[in-house]
Amino acid sequence: MSRFLTIACAMLLALASAPAGAATIQVVIDKLTFSPAEVDAKVGDTIEWLNKDPLAHTATVKGGFEVMIPAGKSGTTVLKKAESVEYYCRFHPNMKGRITVSR
């Protein structure tokens, strides 16, 4: 019985420390536009960019992350801290978006 109780406590502790309700938020790239251009998310959420254009794009944050998004494919990043960031496509700098991350 003691071993069962130890395993059960360990499992509960692992579940309690896991991020609750992490979501995947999709941003579609079509006709050289991020849509939606502004996203509200939480720490632990994943942003997935789905590229419907016949050109490669990036989601680039100066001094931060860069996600390569090939034509017809997707790219992702997991949000690790609460912050507000503006991003753009390195190949097409007129393409811009914003992610606001809260706890």
Rank of each mutant, 00 (worst) to 15 (best):
S2C: 05
R3Y: 10
L5M: 13
T6V: 15
T6R: 11
I7W: 10
A8Q: 05
C9W: 06
C9Y: 09
A10T: 06
A10Y: 00
A10W: 00
A10F: 05
A10M: 09
L12H: 05
L13Q: 11
L13D: 04
A14R: 04
L15V: 09
A16P: 01
S17R: 04
S17C: 12
S17E: 02
S17Y: 07
P19C: 07
A20K: 13
A22V: 02
A23Y: 00
T24K: 10
Q26K: 11
V27W: 00
I29N: 01
I29A: 03
D30W: 06
K31Y: 11
L32I: 03
L32G: 03
T33M: 10
T33S: 15
T33F: 03
F34R: 01
S35Y: 00
S35E: 14
P36K: 08
P36V: 06
A37S: 15
A37R: 12
A37G: 14
D40Q: 15
K42C: 05
K42R: 12
K42Q: 13
V43R: 03
V43I: 12
D45W: 00
T46L: 01
E48D: 05
L50M: 06
N51V: 04
K52A: 13
D53I: 00
D53G: 03
P54L: 07
A56Q: 11
A56G: 10
A56C: 02
A56N: 14
H57L: 11
T58R: 04
A59L: 02
V61W: 07
V61T: 05
K62D: 14
K62H: 09
G63R: 01
G63N: 06
G64W: 00
G64A: 02
F65Q: 01
E66N: 14
E66Y: 01
I69Y: 04
A71Q: 11
A71Y: 08
G72R: 00
S74D: 03
G75A: 06
T76M: 06
T77Q: 10
T77S: 02
T77L: 15
T77F: 06
T77Y: 04
V78E: 13
L79I: 05
L79K: 08
K80I: 02
K81G: 07
K81R: 09
A82M: 10
A82L: 08
S84K: 09
S84R: 10
S84Q: 13
V85T: 07
V85I: 14
E86Q: 11
E86K: 13
E86G: 09
Y87G: 14
Y88H: 08
Y88N: 06
Y88Q: 09
C89V: 07
R90D: 05
R90G: 12
F91H: 10
F91W: 07
H92W: 08
N94I: 02
M95I: 10
M95A: 05
I99S: 02
I99C: 02
I99L: 08
I99V: 15
T100A: 12
T100K: 12
T100I: 06
V101A: 02
S102F: 04
R103L: 08
R103F: 05
